[in-house]
Amino acid sequence: MRNNKKKISGVSTGFIQSLNFSFDGHAFFLVCSAVLLIFGLARPEHTNKISLQVVDIVSPAMAVLSFPVKSLAEAVGNISNAATIRAENVELKLENERLREWYQVALMLEAENQSLKELLSLEIDPQRQYVAAYVLSDAATGFTKSIIIASKEINKVNIDQAVLAGDGLVGRIISVGQNAARVLLINDVHSRVPVVIEGGQQKAILSGNGGAYLDLKYLSAETILKEGKRVVTSGHGAVFPKGLPVGVLFKNKKGMYQVKPYTDINRVSYVRVIQSENNAIDYE
């Protein structure tokens, strides 16, 4: 037994010696990294602060340096999109015609809706204020989905404000610094958005899964879903204002209903951060 122990300790010592950790201080920095990792997992609030301070410091330099790289990436994207441009153009023309008709209908309905609300003495929703920002660093990877945004008016941006891009919701602010803010995208696995499916006003929680499409959770058993239905924020939980467009329902290959976001979340360059309005319903 003793011999075995000696043998085991002998083998392990030999193994460690064979690794020759003295090379270039690897062991020291590996231990430092491991300690930092454990500390970061135990106290994420501290490391998040440090992370944002670093982003604040490097963000002006990153804005300048990432410009040529981003341009190159966009050029690659444009080339890869060139093949589908003709078909897309035809489709867009048809859509444009349809939308012009709908625009006139929408104007009439808006006026009618406003006058009816006035008749009923309902509080009319205030106009939304936005802070425009550009995407500084695309921090969305295969594992985490977040972006860093920068704006001259970043001091007006606060935690939990909704972020829109193009036609729909893309995420919410999770941390704000002096020069930049971090946005958690709606397809991150930690993202939860209370939504309603238009038509039947069915409520659900929209959950990110790291992929391009979003999952619907906590739907009631009697919910009847239909492809093409719009999904908008419900305003529950006092984070997202109600009525923000998120995406449309569709049936995936497995026959499950998912939500396709209105905005291509992987290719966001500019965003709008919603200000002031607080239409959200707070149950606390």
Partner: peptide, 19 residues
């Protein structure tokens, strides 16, 4: 370390992996 801090990963993860 900078990679983790800028991309918002748990700090030290990529320092450990790269090393």
């Amino acid at each position: 370390l900078l990679y983790d801090l800028i991309l918002g990963f748990p700090i030290g993860l990529h320092a450990f992996l790269f090393l």
